[in-house]
Nucleic acid binder design. Structure first.
Lengths: 147, 147
DNA sequence: CAAAAAACATAGTACAAAGCTATGTTGTGT
DNA sequence: ACACAACATAGCTTTGTACTATGTTTTTTG
């Protein structure tokens, strides 16, 4: 049970935006370099995050990205849902659907509970939560290479 | 983020043992049929679970498997750890190790927290917990096909 | 207005892991 | 000795992850 690099990279991308003063644009290339991630790959995470409406993008020269909301108003659960594709721990509880074998399955109830447990954890955290714990590191001089 | 079929099948296998009266042996083949899982594949989950010491195996004719402990004394966390191979949500927090980039990583602390959150959930649940919620279904007539 | 620079979009590729099958061995009752 | 069940491991197929490559659109700048 591992989260994908998409989710990990995506989080780090958002954190890079979050440490900037509100409204200041940051180029993808800059973040890609600091985070040691391929620029083209990072574009895919951005693409996935678009529908959430948490990004403000400006095209053309001098363009870049910024957060459309304060970090405190960006809960992590939908971010994970987007980046991970689907957050459910097993397919049969994905998308709120009932699987056909529901009435026979001995473990479904358990998986539902676990799904909720993880989601609650993520709903109670925002980008600001991450930011608070790490502002020191992100604003430091050294290049971020990690994870 | 999905749990593997190994974990799902393994749980269902253990539940099948758990509904039996203590000490009664059950053949793998029988469980495999009821759960609609290939016998050979199921053997792999059993193999993975062996080191936990929760299984009693008897070889030869008339042999089979039984739980070595009451279901209430079998917490799910180590079961998941065995079946899933590694429970950590990201590689850098696996095995209690510190990753090299630790001092630079902006998200490590968060992942550690999530790791703990999931483990606590599983530590607070035992096979008995699963059993309580599902005894009806498992003792029913119909063949279990699910999940 | 052309050129450069940024976001935007999607197809394709290499590798790894998941999921499962197949085959053979060892031990134990009849 | 024979049947039967657990034990063990190698191999194969499919899927998905992680990434690259290519091209398009929009906007600023010289």
């Amino acid at each position: 049970m591992r989260f994908s690099t998409r989710t990990r990279y995506g989080l780090r991308f958002l954190l890079r935006l979050a440490v900037q003063p509100p409204g200041i644009l940051t180029e993808l290339r800059q973040i890609a370099e600091k985070e040691n991630i391929s620029c083209g790959y990072l574009e895919q995470m951005v693409h996935a995050l678009k529908p959430l409406g948490i990004l403000r993008a400006v095209r053309g020269m001098g363009g870049g990205y910024a957060l459309a909301k304060p970090p405190a108003e960006i809960p992590l659960e939908p971010v994970f849902e987007c980046l991970e594709g689907d957050l459910a721990p097993v397919a049969c509880v994905a998308g709120g659907k009932n699987c056909q074998r529901e009435c026979l399955c001995s473990t479904r109830e358990f998986w539902l509970e676990m799904d909720v447990h993880i989601r609650v954890f993520l709903k109670n955290k925002t980008l600001q939560t991450l930011l608070d714990a790490n502002q020191r590191r992100l604003t430091g001089e050294r290049t971020h290479v990690g994870l």
